[in-house]
Design a binder for these strands. Sequence first.
DNA 1: CAAAATACGTAACATACGATACAGCGCTCG
DNA 2: CGAGCGCTGTATCGTATGTTACGTATTTTG
Lengths: 275, 275
Amino acid sequence: MISSIAELISDRIGTMPAGERRAAQTLIANYPLIGLKTVAEFSTASGVSSPTILRFVARLGFQHYPEFQSALQDELAAQLQSPASRTLNPPSPNGGAVSPLLEATLDNLRETFKHLSDKQLADIAARLADRRGKTFLIGGRFTDPLACYMAAHLAIVQPNVFHLTGQESVWRDRLIDMGKRDVLVIFDIRRYQDSLVRFAETAHQRGVQIVLFTDQWLSPIARFARHVIAGRTAVPSAWDSSAALFVVAETLIGAVTRQLEADSAKRIRELESLR
Amino acid sequence: MISSIAELISDRIGTMPAGERRAAQTLIANYPLIGLKTVAEFSTASGVSSPTILRFVARLGFQHYPEFQSALQDELAAQLQSPASRTLNPPSPNGGAVSPLLEATLDNLRETFKHLSDKQLADIAARLADRRGKTFLIGGRFTDPLACYMAAHLAIVQPNVFHLTGQESVWRDRLIDMGKRDVLVIFDIRRYQDSLVRFAETAHQRGVQIVLFTDQWLSPIARFARHVIAGRTAVPSAWDSSAALFVVAETLIGAVTRQLEADSAKRIRELESLR
DNA sequence: CAAAATACGTAACATACGATACAGCGCTCG
DNA sequence: CGAGCGCTGTATCGTATGTTACGTATTTTG
């Protein structure tokens, strides 16, 4: 049963030629407002010609463009009349195969943040924003991209941010640059990597402050860490999910940026002018 | 301060003549959809003539009727973009500073998946699981870690997965290895990178199938993409959030793994023994 | 109560919008 | 490699839509 136009589109998008598919994609991306504008606006937004738009709506089964618009409006009207139906629809209305994973991820996010106090996040953010020391980031096999993501953002708002990458021997040698005022952010989830544990231990001995992102079973690095963020990772999939850790990372990035606002604004302007 | 047109109306409805007041009342009653229809429909619904409708919108301060409609659409767009404000949910029950970002992220996830059909995901997963061709992944400044994350997983369950990294000239030269049977996964959100667009264009010309992860405003690469995944990125932070795209990526990773289950299990055992 | 001013609708007009015919192009298949 | 098909954009056309002028009705004021 197809109830909404959005479903109708995603149902037939596979059978569409390239141009109409582009129209479909822009409509889905800006659903449904682009469809309420004129054919000309819709077409330029999609980067196709107006006849293609008309062929697109014809393929959806509408006789005229206005008829298509009316359908969209009716749908919108139904949505606006009962806002409750929108909020309370998590019981997977589409019942598809992806929903379980989405539901699990949403739960993971909520659970993760429930066990995470504002104060803890504020403390970590303050530590990361402290510009007297350097910040190093590193991750494991699957989590190093998270370290990379975080480093990319932090490096913009403050100096002395380093993502440790490449060969183990290379980043291990960087230990020599680390001291008491420095922060080491480590991402490590199962199966925990020995190399990272050893690295963390040595860093700890040198007085480096360690911020650990790990799963709920806690990497052995937690022994040495000053701050531990335990994210839920269980999802109905062959792999663990790092989504919760990802969102915590984004939260911290936001907090650090806000904290450095005054300085970072100036810094960002400087960076812009360097382009 | 008057922010919405509805407020503007209730502000001035007292100074309006009878006919225009009827127009105002029917608009409020069916807000805002009546205003998006034609003047004729609006007028018959209100029981007045079309010039009265036009005088009504003129009194609200709009030069033309289309201008009035655009304003309504913009308002609707703002509402639909941030479901948090629309739903009457208690503004962060625990009142923490992190909650807004978490709430926004949860909304983004839900919205993103709402516009994503199971079929579309299944199509993409099938394409990625097709082992007759190679799979290349690349991302922009902030999204390359996502490409990296996805590549790390996909490379385990199947051969011929390559994360394009390093210098632009290096990965651009890899175009020579790409053909019709290959898939190129690109992550690109604002501000879209020219280099990626050019890369996508040439790849497209060579017949490479492009799977694009982008934001709701669609990277120009959408022109060349076979499949487009539009994720919500808006959060109350200085940065855009890639969390929605991250979860979609995890979903696809899971789907591909399930699809290749039989083969990948053997492959994973082999990998284990190589350690 | 009368006269003027305001409000409203009918009807004619112009514009801009959707629809269509046609030609060029790329792609597929023999 | 060539012929055929299908997709796409340009240019044109008809029409629905917003707009305006004007006359009538209604209310307001002296």
